[in-house]
Design a protein around this nucleic acid. Structure first.
Lengths: 274, 274
DNA sequence: ACCGGCGCTCGTACGATGTACGACCATCGG
DNA sequence: CCGATGGTCGTACATCGTACGAGCGCCGGT
């Protein structure tokens, strides 16, 4: 989207096709339209951007296992191999998707209140990651170094700068927050997956939801009866569900607040306020 | 390994083969040995446990993409499909691997000092996860509910119990710590991956390490020169490497300490000490 | 007006993967 | 001695990423 000189990628990401002559492509398409001709399958020319967008859409709608070159190409009414003119490999496409995702982050206002600003950053980052329930398996292998993620880090550093803080400690503190967010999303997606497993098993065995609940409860009973897990048993008896879906937000925010408390304390101890 | 009644798995994990008649297998093997006969390819009978162990070994040695049924079977001198008598699918094998991994955690002593105990738990958990550099991509999709992970949670709850704490807040606090650990390992593995990318690119292009360094530095220069990333630039100028490998441990512990500070404060606020 | 090259598309083909199916064989209980 | 059972594995298929190269329409040069 014409980001000009900002489209900076680290050197070891080698891109496949180009993007600069897209205007020329426009011209060609105009011409084709005028003369009633089209490329065989597609109604308009592809572009890197379009590919990434549909890849994201497919992934969002159908989960990680649906991210296949063939699936994406089909969605685009294009031949599978056509994609390879724009991206050099599936890996690169994933990088692009991840970075595009970071572009979605709404830039909230920086108020100058460090704690509050960090908190909203973390919350919105988590929300963004949760919207894309396919990311975690790939996240694990992809370093966030594309232009959009860089801009994101830049903004986060800006939060500290607005509170008159710089230096190594800032980077460390920032990383701590991002780390926590990443972990939280990972854990939450684990639980979602667990839920799906359960539903699939339920369907496979043709059981009602109640029956499934019973089976699960029997399992818990067995665990408790084994006597090897007294503390866990205690928790269950107190009504604490280790996988509680409803309390996920509160849990996230509890941990986040603890972390922020600690960070603020330590930062102010070394750099005594503004 | 004869864990008796403790081998409890949630109901939606359906296992394939059995494990109880392994003694009978022993008998057969004895008999075969006595009469000089063997099953064609293998020297001894398979077992679920052996499969999981070699799968772990292969994964540790060759990374996540080496975890394939064929590869593991080859390592075992067995036919690929033989594995399926013991595990119902690759997914299940992954579950088993993950759970076996949790079994590796050395059980450190619980001293009763909540903060210290939590800290060593987090540290050793991180160390364990880092020993298995393949886990993250799978972690993301697997709920930790096997017997070994359960025992682990039990132990962690024991830490709180030893400090006279129970209730919902305990579970929440525990989750916060585990979440942070998970995120940290994820982030660290991202960076390792990034490192590997870089090395592969280096080899592919046939560059020396110095040349590679130069290229990377040029990239940073470009980022800085663009003027769009003033805060990031400031960091670089201060000599802060966002991907610093050497400081990974300190960063982890900084975040952990912040989190623990916050947790301790909040827990003691609601439940005024022992 | 023509033509060579370039930008772009895509069909085919290859080697991997997970796994369903069923043939095979040794052993054990009757 | 004869099924049944427990365990092994070869073959086959669908699906994946992607290398290769043939084909197409357009553009700039003559």
């Amino acid at each position: 989207m014409a980001d000009d000189d900002e489209d900076l990628w680290p050197p070891f990401y080698l891109s496949g096709g180009q993007s600069a002559q897209e205007q020329r492509v426009q011209h060609r398409m105009q011409h084709l339209r005028d003369h009633g001709k089209r490329p065989p399958g597609r109604a308009s020319s592809l572009s890197r951007d379009e590919i990434v967008r549909t890849a994201l859409a497919v992934a969002d709608a159908e989960g990680p296992h649906a991210i296949s070159m063939r699936r994406i190409a089909r969605e685009l009414n294009a031949g599978t191999m056509s994609l390879y003119w724009y991206v050099s490999s599936k890996e690169e496409l994933l990088d692009l998707m991840l970075d595009a995702m970071y572009g979605e982050l709404t830039e909230t206002e920086i108020t100058g209140d460090l704690r509050a600003d960090l908190r909203t950053m973390a919350v919105s980052q988590r929300a963004m990651l949760r919207r894309h329930r396919w990311v975690m398996p790939f996240m694990a292998g992809r370093p966030p170094m594309g232009p959009k993620s860089l801009r994101n880090i830049e903004r986060a550093l800006g939060i500290f700068a607005a509170a008159n803080l710089t230096g190594e400690a800032v980077m460390t503190a920032l990383m701590a927050v991002l780390t926590y967010v990443l972990g939280a999303v990972g854990r939450e997606q684990q639980e979602e997956r667990s839920q799906q497993d359960q539903e699939r098993a339920q369907q496979r065995l043709g059981l009602s939801e109640d029956e499934m609940h019973n089976i699960y409860w029997e399992f818990l009973q067995q665990v408790m009866a084994s006597g090897h897990y007294p503390n866990f048993t205690e928790m269950i008896k107190l009504g604490v569900d280790p996988d509680a879906r409803e309390t996920m937000d509160e849990r996230f925010e509890f941990g986040l607040d603890c972390l922020l408390d600690g960070i603020m304390a330590r930062l102010h101890r070394s750099a005594p306020a503004q």
